[in-house]
Computed example of a mutant assay.
Amino acid sequence: MTVYLHEGDLPDGLDLGRQVAVDSETMGLRFRRDPLCVVQLSAGNGDAHVVRLNRPDYDCPNLKALMADQDVLKIFHFGRFDIAMVELHLGVETGPVYCTKIASKLARTYTDRHGLKDVARELAGIDLSKAQQSSDWGAPELSQAQLEYAASDVLHLHVIMNRLNEMLVREGRMEIAQACFDFLPVRARLDLIGFEDDVFAHTWAR
């Protein structure tokens, strides 16, 4: 495994293929309080590219172009948050997308454990460490431990996606999964405008 650190943007000419795993790191989980600090990507070849973003300008044309490229599938785990952060701070709509958390909920109905750590352990045979999850991602320099953590969140998403697709096809749920993925950027935009609650929910009057 090689982890490449890029300051500000992806390098010119970098080709990550037609399916790229993506994750992000922020200073917290509130959209307008906590900035987007890092975006990490992998082509599924065992290497990871970690972009430490320049804040607050977010001048990263190559990364923006990749996120908006309709010919490149972006693979996330809990993409709802990452997609919203990218739209808020980079100003682009991410697509097309695949979310392994949604796929897991539709395929692995025998469990309620759909976090990346649990999914990776079962489907990829990988035991992920979450020790750096709550570290300072806005620091002027990222530690080696942070880089390795960021990489670990994207290195196995291709394998996980392929295993989940097999399960979705087997259970006849691939079509509904794709519909969920297509809706995900809209769900992320609802979060950004203040509709974090389920707009489809209904409380029956008694």
Rank of each mutant, 00 (worst) to 15 (best):
K101V: 04
R108Q: 07
A120K: 04
D127S: 13
E122A: 08
I83P: 07
I83E: 07
M85N: 11
L90W: 10
A124H: 04
D71F: 01
D82P: 07
L88T: 02
E93M: 05
K105N: 02
G79K: 03
R108P: 06
Y110A: 15
S129K: 11
K105E: 04
T111A: 14
M85Y: 15
R121Y: 11
E87D: 12
S104T: 05
D71L: 01
K105H: 03
H114G: 13
H114K: 09
L73R: 03
V72E: 00
L106E: 07
D71Y: 04
T109C: 10
R80L: 01
I102E: 00
G115M: 07
G115F: 03
R121W: 08
H89K: 06
Y98P: 00
T111Y: 08
H114Y: 14
T100G: 12
L123D: 01
A107R: 04
K74I: 09
D118I: 03
D127L: 11
A120I: 02
G125D: 06
G95V: 02
R80Q: 10
G79W: 04
I102N: 02
A120G: 08
D127M: 09
K130D: 15
L73Q: 11
T111C: 08
S104V: 01
R113Q: 14
Q132N: 05
L90F: 12
G125I: 06
L128Y: 07
L73F: 00
L123Y: 06
A131D: 12
I83F: 05
D112P: 00
H114R: 15
R108Y: 02
T94C: 14
R80G: 00
E122H: 10
H89S: 08
D112V: 11
G91R: 11
T94R: 03
A103G: 06
G91F: 07
F78H: 09
R80T: 03
